[in-house]
Every structure is written in structure tokens, then in C-alpha cells.
Design a protein around this nucleic acid. Structure first.
Length: 259
DNA sequence: ATAATATGGTGAT
DNA sequence: TCACCCTATTATC
């Protein structure tokens, strides 16, 4: 399931499978027939990850994919197996098949559309060219909570619901603290931690926010400190669960005092 | 079999 | 804040 690291990992994995080759593009499920037809037979010229968005470049055209909550990639060597589940898009190169199930966004963009998409998301913690100053300008002027702000993809891109709780716990900051009351130094720690955690997430293809080795692994291979946990690994105290704009959030009452 | 849940996002109210 | 979109998996009858 996708936070920013999933998308960058997919780009890294799929480049050698697809880029430079003419692809057969189809929609086994049938809900992307027209888009697939526009791309079918074109050569894939690159794959770019921007936050949680993936752009498969085909010269002037781009296939824009956003997985949302449910989407997933399935990659395999050819010969391809039967599509599994609801495969919206299947891309086949000479060597591989990439299936995309359940994406939230799946559309063909022209050059302007792709540029507009990139420009509406904030600096991506996983991109070397990201400018954290842009995020700081938004955060330091906002009355919204830091918990909302760091997961707002137009403020900064890549962090999802798990990384949000984990990063703020690691930095001992309560999610409800208003952005405008956050010291610059605290923002710098959040940004740096996000960069290092999501980078590790790309490398391990899982969300890992604990230092060192821990035994317990969830179904998806995550190793986390407080997300959906009862007790704080640092102080042993209780983790409180609450909601931020309809999404689950967690914090340690002792380590992250309320503002 | 049916419901509930999930690491996301948009657009209307 | 809510309705809604999209799918797979697990939990509950």
C-alpha cells in the first residue's frame, strides 16, 4: 500500500523493465480502453515519480497513475500470466508485464497537463531537487496543525498516514500543534527525518521507522513505533488514537505533550 | 454472504 | 465535514 516510498520504488523497479521499449498497452478490465489505445505501441521514454504520483513518459504523452488507497502494481517477467483481479492497465515490454490494479487516477496527459500536475504538488522529500523552503513558507504561515500540513501533498509530498504519526513521534511533536507555532528547527528535523525514513522505505520496500532490528513485522512488512500500537516503545506509556481530518492518528501522551 | 477496513484524494455542502 | 471513487482482504454473521 502506497505512501511516497512505494511510488519511487516502483519507478526504480520498472525503469529497466519498460523504458526504451515500445509497449503493448491494454486495459484487461476494460475501463481504460481509450487511454490504452492512445499509448499502445509507443515507446516508453522514462518513468518519473513525484510524491505519490507516477508518470510513465511516452514522448509528448504521459500516463499518470495515482494509486490512492487501493491501487497496486504487479510486475512479472513474460510470458505474462492471466490478469489477476481488476487490471486497469497492462503494459508489456519485450521482457516484462506491469499490471496496475485499482488506481485512483489513471489518465493520459499531454506535456502541459503533466507539468501542471507536477507544479501543484509540494516539494517531494524523495527528490534531490526538492526545496524544503517552499514547505516551510506554507507551514510557518498556517494555522492548520502540523499533522495536517505534513500530509498535505501541496505543502510537501510523499508522507502518508503512517509516516505522519511515526515522524512526529520520533521528533516528539504533537500532531495538533499549529504550523505557525512550530520552530524552524523542529521543521528542519521533520524534513530531515522524512527524507531519511522514506529513503529507507524505498530501499527496503516497506515502512521502517524503528532504529535497529525489531522482531515484529506486520503483514506488509512494516516495522513501526506507534502506528496502531498501544504502548510507547520509548516510555512505556499509552498511545492515544484520534483522528485528523478523518484519518487515524497516534501520539504518545508523555513524549508528545499536547500544545 | 455480507460488512468493515485500509498506508489517498477530490469536489460539493 | 461529508459523499464518493476505486479494490483486496479480513472479520463477522
Amino acid at each position: 500500500m502506497p505512501e511516497g516510498h512505494t511510488i519511487h520504488r516502483a519507478a526504480r523497479d520498472q525503469r529497466p523493465m519498460l523504458v526504451g521499449q515500445a509497449l503493448d498497452v491494454s486495459s484487461p478490465q476494460g475501463r481504460f480502453m481509450a487511454g490504452a489505445a492512445r499509448l499502445d505501441g509507443r515507446r516508453c521514454t522514462g518513468i518519473d515519480a513525484h510524491g505519490k504520483h507516477l508518470l510513465y513518459r511516452f514522448g509528448e504523452l504521459s500516463l499518470h497513475i495515482h494509486l490512492g488507497l487501493f491501487g497496486r502494481f504487479r510486475c512479472a517477467r513474460r510470458p505474462a500470466a492471466e490478469p489477476k483481479g481488476e487490471v486497469r492497465v497492462r503494459m508489456m515490454s519485450g521482457t516484462h508485464t506491469v499490471d496496475i490494479n485499482g488506481p485512483n487516477s489513471c489518465e493520459v496527459l499531454d506535456t502541459g497537463g503533466a507539468a501542471a500536475l507536477v507544479s501543484r504538488i509540494g516539494p517531494d522529500v524523495l527528490r534531490a531537487d526538492a526545496d524544503p523552503e517552499r514547505a516551510w513558507q506554507r507551514i510557518s504561515r498556517s494555522r492548520a496543525s502540523i499533522g495536517q500540513l505534513i500530509m498535505d501533498q501541496s505543502v510537501m509530498a510523499g508522507i502518508g498516514n503512517i509516516y505522519r504519526s511515526e515522524i512526529l513521534w520520533r521528533q516528539r511533536i504533537h500532531p495538533d500543534r499549529p504550523g505557525s507555532l512550530l520552530p524552524r528547527e523542529a521543521f528542519d528535523r521533520i524534513w530531515a527525518d522524512a527524507v531519511s525514513l522514506l529513503t529507507l522505505g524505498v530501499k527496503s520496500n516497506a515502512i521502517i521507522t524503528v532504529d535497529g532490528m525489531k522482531k515484529s513485522k506486520s503483514r506488509y512488512g512494516e516495522r513501526v513505533n506507534i502506528f496502531a500500537k498501544d504502548a510507547c516503545p520509548a516510555c512505556g506509556g499509552p498511545i492515544t488514537a484520534f483522528e485528523i481530518a478523518g484519518r487515524r492518528a497516534f501520539a504518545c501522551t508523555a513524549c508528545q505533550p499536547k500544545p
